[in-house]
């Protein structure tokens, strides 16, 4: 395990600037998640670190050594691909042993066996070792793909949306397991995802990336509570933060153009008040309900207790409770 440091890295594909001026340090034993929408440049950033793409400018240091121009094999990184990327004609065991059998590593066959079995137990696939890689379910394939990275002890594990192709239940399970394994091994992980839940639950720090640029990096709490702009604020929180004109509400600080109100920033009461809205639709999710409101022609989505018994057509009053404020360009304004 080691520290990975990338400094103002840029990469363009033709006319598309995939990554621009990205700087990021992943500390030893840290779990950093890069969160962003599709096409934000997350995967490109990961591939640049792995050496699968050549960068246009900037530098990459792994464990203190300059790796900017090194071949993928020399960087001592492990990569978990989104599409599993298993060797289909090999067994699970052979897939996991593949990297260890590289002649440059000189690992004894007995040690390989011990190591693979150890990792397989960790991932609960020890009974599948003799199966062909293609005879597994999606969840098992992804475990093998992760296992193939884990048998090595690389400087850093680079994971490209490894759970995105799994169903929700399995994703939840593997999320917990991955975090457990990371803590157990003290592994350094850079994890790319567009799923805020994965980023929030696993990462020690989250980097929010948008249009090839790193917008903000910090602990999940920092990012959630103190987003530097409306983009970052919109990345986290379920339902998505409501961005409303500040003029709709009375007391806004100087320069604030937009109010960002998540569920916890809104107090709802029956009957009309200073700011009134109409209930358009109620989605019952069981333990809670999504309340779709109409506030002077603008949609507002918030959570409500199902016991509150709101129905379509009801008039409610809204009160803000320490919301976030943004200026006309979307940058944060102190309350």
């Amino acid at each position: 395990m080691a520290e990975v440091e990338i400094v103002s890295v840029s990469k363009a594909f033709g006319k598309t600037q995939a990554v621009s001026g990205l700087s990021l340090t992943v500390g030893d034993g840290e779990f950093v998640a890069l969160l962003g929408p599709t096409g934000a440049g997350k995967t490109t950033a990961l591939r640049l670190i792995a050496g699968l793409e050549q960068l246009d400018s900037g530098s990459i240091r792994i464990d203190g050594r300059d790796m900017t121009a090194a071949a993928p094999a020399d960087r001592d990184v492990a990569f978990v691909f989104q599409q599993y990327s298993l060797y289909p004609h090999l067994t699970v065991f052979e897939n996991m042993a593949f990297a260890l059998r590289a002649p440059t590593r000189r690992v004894a066959e007995a040690d390989i066996r011990t190591k693979v079995q150890e990792v397989a137990r960790l991932l609960h696939i020890e009974t599948k070792l003799d199966n062909k890689a293609t005879q597994l379910s999606g969840g098992q394939m992804q475990r093998v793909a992760i296992g193939r990275a884990l048998v090595r002890s690389p400087s850093i594990y680079l994971m490209d949306e490894p759970l995105s192709s799994l169903d929700a239940k399995l994703r939840g399970e593997l999320r917990l397991e991955l975090k457990r394994i990371q803590v157990e091994l003290g592994a350094t992980i850079l994890y790319v995802t567009h799923d805020q839940t994965e980023a929030m639950t696993m990462a020690s720090r989250i980097g929010v990336i948008e249009g090839g640029r790193l917008m903000q990096i910090g602990t999940p709490r920092e990012i959630y509570e103190n987003p530097i702009n409306a983009h970052v604020a919109a990345r986290l929180g379920q339902p998505v933060i409501n961005l409303l004109p500040a003029a709709l509400f009375g007391s806004a600080p100087v320069g604030a153009a937009t109010v960002g109100a998540r569920t916890e920033h809104l107090t709802i009461a029956r009957g009309s008040g200073d700011v009134s809205a109409t209930v358009k639709r109620v989605e019952h999710l069981g333990d809670q309900s999504h309340l779709h409101l109409d506030l002077a022609g603008r949609p507002v989505v918030t959570l409500a207790d199902p016991e509150a018994g709101f129905g379509a057509g009801d008039v409610v009053s809204l009160r803000l409770n320490k919301p976030l404020f943004f200026d006309a360009n979307g940058w944060r304004v102190a309350a």
């Binding site: 691909f81 599409q83 004609h89 593949f98 990297a99 590289a102 002649p103 590593r105």
Partner: peptide, 27 residues
């Protein structure tokens, strides 16, 4: 043969020779 299999092999330190014998030819 998808490119990412070769990329995985690249990261796994498989030489071009080993990539040919253990990926290209069998597939």
């Amino acid at each position: 043969i998808p490119d990412y299999i070769y990329e995985a092999a690249e990261v796994d330190r498989a030489s071009k020779w080993r990539q040919f014998w253990s990926i290209t030819l069998p597939m």
